[in-house]
């Protein structure tokens, strides 16, 4: 079937159909993020829909989340999560330059900052559940709060697992400049996890009460 490749006389030279800017990895990751956005979008739409619809007498967002210290803690944790996005960008930049050691340092910093956020969420939940007895069963607000924040935390956990995997590989000396693109794709996922937190935070902690 070599005829398939022989350019017929007079035929226009076919342009390269592959857009150079978009390779499979990037396209796949963007699609994954798009589907994640519709998933979180649904959860958040439900959360918004249920604001203020709780039966009277059950804990409200204002009571649970407005205890003067709690939101401060959350803001504190959020700053850690959001700045980790900066560190991961710096890390990828170092890897692109072939600077493995600097890459490892920024990468570890990303992991630690992400971990701090997760631990912070854990303490917040411990306070709400163990000390105040506020659970997913309490009321609609509880259902929505733990589902939305929980799914976000689950995504942070998955992200941290993948980041740690890369870090272990780095320590074993398996990461090289040629892996920049794959690591960059992972950083896109991490940016998404951070970005969606801004939306979750706005809806749950600001609009929500």
């Amino acid at each position: 079937m070599s005829t398939l490749n022989a350019q017929p006389v007079g035929a226009p030279t076919p342009p390269d159909a592959l857009p150079q800017t978009l390779n499979s990895g990037k396209c796949g990751m963007l699609c994954l993020i798009a589907s994640e956005i519709t998933f979180f979008g649904t959860l958040l739409a439900v959360y918004l829909f249920y604001i203020g619809k709780d039966p009277v007498g059950t804990p409200t967002p204002a009571e649970m989340l407005d205890v003067s210290v709690a939101p401060l803690k959350v803001v504190f944790n959020s700053i850690f999560l959001l700045t980790s996005s900066i560190w991961i960008t710096l890390a990828v930049r170092q890897l692109a330059r072939g600077n493995i050691k600097a890459f490892a340092v920024w990468w570890l910093l990303t992991i630690l900052f992400g971990l701090e956020f997760l631990v912070g969420t854990g303490f917040e939940w411990y306070g709400l559940i163990a000390e105040q007895g506020f659970t997913i069963r309490t009321n609609l607000f509880g259902s929505g709060f733990y589902t939305v924040v929980g799914f976000h935390a689950a995504h942070v956990t998955i992200g941290l697992f993948l980041l740690s995997l890369v870090f272990v590989l780095t320590c074993l000396g398996k990461m090289h400049q040629r892996h920049t693109e794959k690591v960059e794709l992972l950083s896109w996922y991490w940016h998404f996890v951070d970005g969606i937190w801004i939306v979750v935070f706005t809806i749950v902690y600001i609009i929500g009460h």
């Binding site: 589907s35 998933f39 439900v46 997913i136 609609l140 509880g142």
Partner: peptide, 29 residues
């Protein structure tokens, strides 16, 4: 399809964890 997954997860939480998303007695819709 992800919105269906989200809705089903909420229903699963209702059934297994006692959440109230679609439980009309608890204010669900």
């Amino acid at each position: 399809m992800p919105p269906l997954a989200a809705a089903q997860v909420m229903l699963l939480f209702d059934r297994l964890l006692g959440a109230h998303f679609f439980d009309v007695q608890g204010g669900g819709s």
